[in-house]
Design a binder for these strands. Sequence first.
RNA 1: GCCCCUGUAGCUCAACUGGCAGAGCAGCGGACUCUUAAUCCGAAGGUUCCAGGUUCGAUUCCUGGCGGGGGCACCA
Length: 479
Amino acid sequence: MADELLAVRRAKLEKLRADGIDPFPHRFAGVEPVAAVLAAHEALEAGQETDATHRVAGRLAARRGQGRMAFLDLVDRSGRLQLQARQDVLGDELHERLLTQVDLGDIIGVDGTALRTKRGEISLRIERFTVLAKSLRPPPEKHHGLQDVETRYRRRELDLMANEEARELFIARAKVITAIRSLLDGENFIEVETPILQPLYGGALARPFTTHHNALDRTLYLRIATELYLKRCIVGGLERVYEIGKNFRNEGLSTKHNPEFTVLEFYEAYADYNDVADRLESLVRSVAAQVGSTGRIDFEGPWRRVTLRAAIRDATGVDFMEHRDRAGLVAAIGDRLPTGGRTWPQLVDDLLSSFVEPTLQQPTFLMDYPVELSPLAKAHRSEPGLVERWEAFCAGIEIANAFTELNDPDEQRARFEAQARLAAEGDEEAAPYDEVFVQALEQGMPPTGGVGLGIDRLVMSLRDRSSIREVVLFPAMRD
RNA sequence: GCCCCUGUAGCUCAACUGGCAGAGCAGCGGACUCUUAAUCCGAAGGUUCCAGGUUCGAUUCCUGGCGGGGGCACCA
């Protein structure tokens, strides 16, 4: 059957060629979005015709009627426009060609005149049409669209052509990134590009992808974060920098994790974590206002700010600051979590992810983390054992992470040494010692606040999607 | 890596307790000059994911594999 469908379309392709029609012409200039045509004739009354001509192009999505008059739906990025095909306008040959050689799914260009049909739909009467690309495979079902999740992820082009909400989502995603750039540029941030291929990875605790450079005959890593290079830009005096790009982490896939994911990081000299919290909050609020939010999350109001300590204490009764030793914390947790083999910082993280994170539906900052979890953050100005770090959550997942950046090179060196000890104990996610970065700090880095924001996760919350695969065009899939 | 669910026509979905695998859309032939999930008539379209097993008989039950979804683990 599949072969039959393909053969029929190929036969039509050959028929077009036999008739002297190029089924894959090079260009079609002067196209208007269909939404512009619809907007221009909003005032027409039912049955009213015009002499206004328009040129549109897009994919043929539906066809009604097979006789001397037919209606077709043309879809472009801006929307859907009904076309009216009349034999008395096109002539016998062209009308016949349109109805028999052109298939649903073909890309066509149309010149026509605007009217509103007796049934009230703004339409374009086809004066001329051009096949712009013959489609040799059948499109997804016209009414139900493409539902199969696997096909939607693996063959995103089919999802995009069949499902308007998929198009809307990825257009919205683009607007999010454009809005972020515009807002940061307006605050005198400069956008930089730092290496994706790195001789040493850093800036987060994660396992990297490893590759090899032949000419240099050396191992390179795909970055897991942009943090260390961006701080070197701050050391260099760029003062306000940001980067939007992919990070890569060689870890499991889940509804919240894709091995490559898009992150905004920005760093601001002379600011601390409170300043950058204010900045992130207003940034996301503006983005949400510009792009719109379809979910139940309210980005408008002030975001809740609570310490990590209080959040865990309120949810569990466990105050990790009163149990700075592993044994004490294990005793306080009791049988609520498996504690075997977990270190003290891991247990704090477990408490957070099990009992606090799922409850954080509306935007919330959790402030002040144990130093053990944060090798790049500056010690808290008043709370011993804590660092000035926050994470922002909404819809039960983390969307951002920020520090008052550690700028004391000796302290940074000591933190790296602590990580090196963890690595020696077998922790594959411990941060490697980065001497070049420490030397950069030795040049002197101003007090700095920095933020990482997960763009994929932000789009998830703005468009009410529960899987990161819904917001990544081509998510990682098994072969 | 573990657990649960899942895989049927190009697409969207059916198929009772194990008894000839069906419909809509799309496609094909035909009718139709205001349709819009167009309508009507007709004919067609299947390796039921793969490999085994049980059975007179398997889409259905069992085992294994592969893909997908969800959860756990892991992880910013």
